[in-house]
């Protein structure tokens, strides 16, 4: 074992299960929580903390899908519109009097189909991900508005079971938080312990080397958009069940939130680096930050400025640490 030694922290390859940046991020999150508690005693109030967790869960689910897409060097701008279409679809299906299970399945199917369309366009058609999903974003929003005739659709009274998904608690935690934890756990397992997970990193790292290594690049690329569409529709279900309305404008702007979360969590926009653990922490950081600003009364307009700046800073930090590693 002459050539192997265990002191290898510095130059570690960046797979999801080895998170050199993740540890730093945990400290950022803890620091933010301390600052929040100092600035406003209301922060540590259990009701407030539960709200923060709900926020993390809602953005977190869709951000996990975004993380998969970004790992392949892609981007999915259409998740917000997919949420819109699915929210309206869900409300319309309830209106038709279908059972809860069927409504949920069909809503998820709608999201999967839209994701599949993205995947086909990118993987088979060769349309750049930015353009494909931008087109889907505009088409999807148009579709949602058309289906709903521009109006929010109320679910009415017959949906008590369904409302549990967005409003219920289980073992002291809100149900959406459980949904997010399950999604995140599966995603972490897939990226870390399956060949498919490795292939996602491979496609994002070097697509030609991936092909020559025998990876079905088209299939992998297609699949991540499918996953992203599925998780967007899952988010839509949580949305609708919490608000008990299917709004055609649901999810507007969430794609930027999801990209920000993935990037802050250390997933590289240049593909092949990062993972879901970072995304969980990224979602928490963004949610705590928004919460602090709400508690101390920062205007929503100013909040936007701060969020935008944080995205740029996160990418600047990535570029800076990469340059340092290459020295």
């Amino acid at each position: 074992m002459a050539s192997i030694d265990t002191d290898q922290q510095k130059k570690s390859g960046r797979l999801g299960f080895r998170m050199p940046k993740g540890l730093g991020l945990v400290w950022v999150l803890i620091g933010l929580c301390i600052v929040a508690a100092l600035l406003s005693p209301a922060f540590l109030n259990p009701i407030n903390l539960t709200n923060v967790m709900r926020q993390v869960a809602l953005f977190g689910v869709v951000s996990v899908g975004m993380t998969f897409v970004i790992l392949t060097k892609g981007i999915d701008l259409s998740v917000g519109s997919i949420i819109g279409v699915c929210a309206v679809t869900c409300a319309l299906l309830f209106g038709m009097g279908l059972p809860v299970g069927v409504v949920m399945l069909l809503t998820l199917l709608a999201g999967v189909l839209m994701g599949a369309a993205n995947g086909l366009g990118v993987a088979i058609g060769g349309v750049p991900p930015f353009i494909m999903t931008l087109g889907m974003m505009v088409m999807g929003r148009g579709l949602a508005l058309t289906l709903a005739d521009g109006q929010p659709i109320s679910l009415g009274q017959r949906t008590r079971d369904f409302m549990w998904l967005g409003r219920g608690d289980f073992l002291g935690l809100p149900v959406p938080v459980w949904v997010f934890l399950i999604v995140a756990a599966i995603a972490i397992f897939v990226l870390r312990y399956t060949a498919y997970g490795r292939q996602i990193y491979a496609v994002g790292s070097n697509v030609e080397a991936a092909r020559l290594s025998g990876i079905n690049v088209k299939m992998v690329t297609f699949s991540v958009y499918l996953i992203s569409g599925f998780l967007a529709s899952l988010t839509a279900l949580i949305f609708v069940s919490r608000l008990t309305v299917g709004e055609p404008t649901a999810g507007e702007g969430i794609e930027l939130e999801a990209i920000a979360i993935a990037v802050i969590g250390g997933t590289s926009l240049f593909g092949g680096e990062g993972g879901v653990i970072g995304t969980i922490i990224g979602a928490a950081i963004l949610a705590v930050l928004a919460n602090i600003m709400n508690l101390i009364g920062v205007s929503p307009f100013t909040q936007q400025i701060v969020k935008g700046a944080i995205i740029v800073i996160a990418v600047l930090y990535e570029m800076w640490s990469k340059r340092r590693a290459n020295k």
Partner: peptide, 13 residues
């Protein structure tokens, strides 16, 4: 660099 390796990944990978 362009066809053989995943430069930003570990040797193991």
């Amino acid at each position: 660099k362009t066809e053989g390796l995943f430069l930003n990944q570990a040797i193991r990978f």
